[in-house]
Amino acid sequence: MCSLALVPADYTQMKINQMENKTMEGLQIVVCGTLVPDPLQTLEPVTTPTGPGLKNETMLPSVLDPWAAHSLYEAANLAKKVPGSKVYLVSLGPKAKLQQLMMTVAQKVPFELVAIDGTAGGFTDAMEVAKTLATAIEAIPGLDKTRLLVFGGCASASRDAGVTMQLIGEQLGITDQFVGVDEISMSDDGSFSVLERIEGGQYLASTCAGAPAVLAWATGSLPEPPNNPQVGMANMRFVMPALQKAQPAAVGVGGINFEKSEVPAQKRATRIVKDVSADVIAAEIVEWIKG
C-alpha cells in the first residue's frame, strides 16, 4: 500500500498562507446557509412566547438547507478554479445544533466557518436575518468587496421566502444580484456569466463585469461531494474556534403578527382501483384527462 502523506497540519498551514497572502488574487466567496429540518421529518407548528415554532424543534435532526448546500458546493468548485480563492460559510443557528451539523458539512468541502448563535427557525423575519448576516459578513477580517461573491440558496426550506439574499446584498451595497442560479462561468478578466432559472423551465443568461455580486442558487449542477475526513479535520481547526466565539444574535419575527399556523388536514378519500386490467384503467385515465 502506498500512502499519500498529506497530513492535515500541512493543509491547515496552506490555508493560513492563503489567508495571509494579501497579494494573491482570488475570490472571497461567502456562502450564507444554515440548518433546516431533515426533509423526511414530520413538522408540526406550536406557539411559543416568541411566535410560532416547530414541535420538538431542538430535537429534530437537521441538514444543511438544500439550496444553500448546492451553493456551498458550487462555491468550493469555483474557488478551486480561481487560484487564491477562499470560501466562508456564514451560519446563523443554535450553537449546539450548528456544531452537530458541521460534523457532516465540514467533511464535504473546505471552508472557514463564521457562526452566529441564534435561531434557525423559519418563522423569523427575513429582514432581521439579513441584517444579522450582513453584519457578520462585514466583520470578516480582510474582507475585500472587490473580490466578494455572496452565495446562498434562492430560498430556504424553512422560511422559503426567497428574499434574504437580496436583502443581504442591499445592506452590503451590492447591486449585481442573481436569483435561481444554476451556473456560473468565470472569465480570466474577472467577469462572469450566469444562468438564472425563470418561468417555463427557461434560463435568463447574463454577464456581469465582476465582483461584488450576490448569487442565490437553485440546484446548480454538482453532486453532493463524498465525506472526506481530511477536509473535515482541516475545517475543524476553524469550526471549533468559530463556534466558541459565536456571538448571540436576537433574531425574531420582526413586525409580523402570526394569526394562525396550521398543518391543513388535506387527507383525501382515496379510491383504490386494483385487480382491474390495464385497458380499463387506461380508458378511465384518458376519460379523466379529457374531462
Binding site: K95, A96, Q99, Q100, M103, T104, Q107, N227, P229, G232, M233, M236, M240, L243, Q244
Partner: peptide, 17 residues
C-alpha cells in the same frame, strides 16, 4: 452526550463515516 463532548473541543465525532 455527543454535543457535550464535541463542545469540549477535545474529540471529533464524525457521523456518516
Amino acid at each position: 452526550v455527543g454535543a457535550e463532548l464535541m463542545s469540549s473541543g477535545l474529540v471529533q465525532i464524525w457521523p456518516g463515516t
